[in-house]
Structure formats: structure tokens, C-alpha cells
């Protein structure tokens, strides 16, 4: 009981600082049967320029570690673990992309792509130094997810 209460307070406190009252907490994101998320996580329109930054920044999305994206070629060494994201804005709707970025496992069962907006259910969560972090923050904030989705929507063939 006590532990649950602590977790909820912890999570609320973590997000209060960066989010408006409308922000959907990671545990409350509504995925449909195919993994897409209809409603914005914040109610604030995504900022594509910031989304681009999130995608190439190692400590944030680090998307280019696994994906080739031609318009991001200036960030060297794109990975090959996932498919090229060229044309992603043609292939997918905004709702689908929101679901893929927030938690790709809801769209692609068992995928290697990390869930960017998720805070529980991890095995031995830690930091990049190998130390335990029992209640890790999500990799991206709700607004950063919206920003990345806004940028992905601009990647058309």
C-alpha cells in the first residue's frame, strides 16, 4: 500500500515540473488495438525543430543509432537496426507515429525499439553508469514525444 502511494506521488512530482495539467502520464496512455494513440499527450502542438534535435541527441531519442534518415545525414553514423525512416510521414498517420514513439511494442510485438514513454515493467532499470534506478523517468517527456511526432510527419518522400 505504502509503496504504491509513494510511486504515484513520485511520478506526479516528476512530471508536474514540465507538464501542464493536461499531460497524460506514461501509465495512462490509451493505445488502440494496433498500438496507435489518438490524443495528444500534452494538448500542446509538437515543435518539429525540437523533435529533430531529440532524434539526433544521444542522451535523448538517439533514433539515428538504429535508423537511417536522409534529412538527418549531418548527424554521422546512422544505424541499421530499424528500417529507414525516409517517408515515415507518408506511411503512417500522426496517431500511429505517436504510438510507435511512445511505446513501439504496442505496434510491433517484441520489437527491439525501446519504449520512449514508459516508466515501469523494466528488468534491473539503471542509468548509463550501471547503477540501479528503481523508478526511472521515461526516456522522453510527453512534449518531446509530441515534438518527435511533429518532425516525423514532415519526413515525406
Amino acid at each position: 500500500m505504502k509503496r504504491t502511494a509513494f510511486l504515484i506521488i513520485g511520478a506526479t512530482a516528476a512530471f508536474a515540473a514540465v507538464a501542464s495539467a493536461d499531460t497524460v502520464a506514461p501509465g495512462d496512455v490509451a493505445y488502440d488495438d494496433y498500438g496507435s494513440v489518438a490524443a495528444s499527450l500534452t494538448g500542446v502542438a509538437g515543435d518539429a525543430a525540437n523533435g529533430e534535435k531529440v532524434m539526433v541527441t544521444k542522451s535523448l531519442g538517439n533514433c539515428v543509432a538504429c535508423h537511417q534518415v536522409s534529412v538527418l545525414d549531418y548527424a554521422a553514423f546512422h544505424g541499421e537496426i530499424g528500417p529507414s525512416l525516409d517517408g515515415a510521414g507518408d506511411r503512417w498517420t500522426e496517431e500511429e507515429l505517436r504510438g510507435i514513439v511512445a511505446n513501439a511494442k504496442m505496434t510491433f510485438e517484441g520489437t527491439l525499439m525501446p519504449a520512449m514513454y514508459k516508466v515501469s515493467g523494466f528488468i534491473r532499470p539503471g542509468d548509463f553508469k550501471g547503477k540501479s534506478v528503481p523508478n526511472p523517468p521515461s526516456i522522453l517527456t510527453a512534449q518531446q514525444v509530441e515534438d518527435v511526432v511533429a518532425f516525423l510527419m514532415t519526413i515525406k518522400e
Binding site: 538517439n62 539515428v64 543509432a65 538504429c66 553514423f77 546512422h78 544505424g79 541499421e80 537496426i81 527491439l112 525501446p114 519504449a115 523494466f122 528488468i123 534491473r124 532499470p125 539503471g126 534506478v133 526511472p136 526516456i139
Partner: peptide, 20 residues
Amino acid sequence: GVLELSCASCHEQSYGLHIR
């Protein structure tokens, strides 16, 4: 971990590919 990757994710499923 937070990235939810196993040894197999990288060394069985993805060997031969670049990660960054």
C-alpha cells in the same frame, strides 16, 4: 534496463548490422 535489450537483441538478432 530501460532500453529493454538482451544480449540476443544485439548479438543474435542484429549481428552484422551497425548500431550507430
